[in-house]
Every structure is written in C-alpha cells, then in structure tokens.
Simulated assay, not measured.
Amino acid sequence: MARRSDQRRAAVFAVYQHDLTGRPLADTLERDAPIFTRALAHATEDYSEDADAIIARHAKGWTIDRIAPLEKAIMRVALTEILHPDAVPGDAPIPPEGAIEEAVKTAKTYAGAQAPKFVNGILAAALREMREDCTP
C-alpha cells in the first residue's frame, strides 16, 4: 500500500490535471488509485469553491486566477484535509500542521522556488483564521 504522503501527492496531481485540462476528475486518477487518493481528490473537487475563497482571502495582492494551477491544487488538497477531515476515509485525520507540512514539501519538490513560502503563508493564515473563529 502506498504511503499517505504519496497518495496525497497523487490527489494533488489529479486535481491539477482536472483543472488544467477540464477532463473529468475520475479520468485524471490512476486506474489503480487507492480509496484514500480517490476520496481526497473528489472531496477536494467538492470543496474547491470554499478553498478558493479562503486562498483568495489570504493571497494578498493575488487573484485566484493568477495563482499557478499546481500551487492552487496543493493548497486545495491541504485545505480539504484541514477543514473537512471527515470527508476522507482513514484511521485518523492528519493534524492541520501535518497537512501544511505535506503541502509545503510537495511545493518544494514540484513547484517554483517561491511556492513553498507562498503555500505555507496562505495555509498558516487560513489555519490561524479557523482557530480564531473557533475560540469563544
């Protein structure tokens, strides 16, 4: 069985290809993709409008359309796991900091030099906002 970090990366690339090509999400997933990968990709698609609103709110000076598609896909997947942990099957959801760490690691490996800092800043701001909203 593939590691969860590999499955997250596969979900990111499926979402990225779906956004870039307009092909159905199911067609961008590997034929033998594990259930976790499929569920995460589909949940990310389901919550993409919410994620995009959060990204746009924290991307100072950037419109959502100007953000590179891969970076957007990375952040959407992380936000799905942070905000909707029950949408994806598994033993225990990843902690929000873990989701951010995985997103930054993916950005370091596959996106531009500035992407890790950009991804980290937006996701950290979103997590702070979420925690402030939950504080009585």
Score class of each variant (00 low, 15 high):
2 A>V: 09
3 R>P: 12
6 D>Y: 15
6 D>E: 15
6 D>C: 10
7 Q>R: 12
7 Q>Y: 02
9 R>M: 07
9 R>G: 08
9 R>Y: 13
10 A>T: 10
11 A>N: 04
11 A>I: 14
13 F>P: 06
13 F>W: 14
19 D>F: 09
21 T>G: 09
22 G>W: 11
23 R>K: 11
26 A>S: 13
26 A>V: 13
29 L>C: 06
31 R>S: 09
33 A>R: 08
35 I>H: 10
35 I>F: 14
35 I>Q: 07
36 F>I: 09
37 T>R: 01
38 R>I: 08
40 L>N: 00
43 A>C: 11
43 A>N: 02
44 T>F: 06
45 E>F: 15
45 E>Q: 15
46 D>I: 12
46 D>N: 13
47 Y>K: 13
47 Y>A: 14
48 S>E: 12
48 S>N: 15
49 E>T: 14
52 D>Q: 14
52 D>N: 08
52 D>H: 12
53 A>S: 14
54 I>D: 12
56 A>Y: 00
56 A>K: 02
57 R>M: 03
58 H>C: 01
59 A>W: 01
61 G>R: 09
62 W>L: 02
63 T>E: 08
66 R>S: 08
70 L>S: 07
70 L>K: 02
72 K>Y: 07
75 M>P: 03
77 V>T: 04
78 A>W: 10
78 A>C: 12
81 E>G: 12
82 I>Y: 00
83 L>M: 05
83 L>G: 09
83 L>Y: 05
85 P>L: 05
86 D>G: 11
87 A>I: 07
88 V>T: 10
89 P>M: 09
90 G>A: 12
90 G>S: 09
91 D>A: 15
91 D>V: 12
91 D>Y: 13
92 A>H: 12
92 A>I: 13
93 P>T: 04
93 P>K: 02
94 I>M: 14
96 P>T: 07
98 G>S: 06
99 A>E: 02
99 A>F: 06
106 T>W: 00
106 T>K: 01
107 A>M: 01
107 A>C: 07
107 A>Q: 04
109 T>G: 02
110 Y>F: 12
113 A>S: 15
113 A>F: 15
116 P>L: 01
118 F>P: 04
119 V>S: 05
121 G>M: 00
121 G>V: 01
122 I>E: 00
126 A>R: 00
126 A>Q: 06
127 L>H: 03
129 E>V: 06
131 R>V: 11
132 E>H: 13
133 D>L: 15
133 D>S: 06
136 P>T: 02
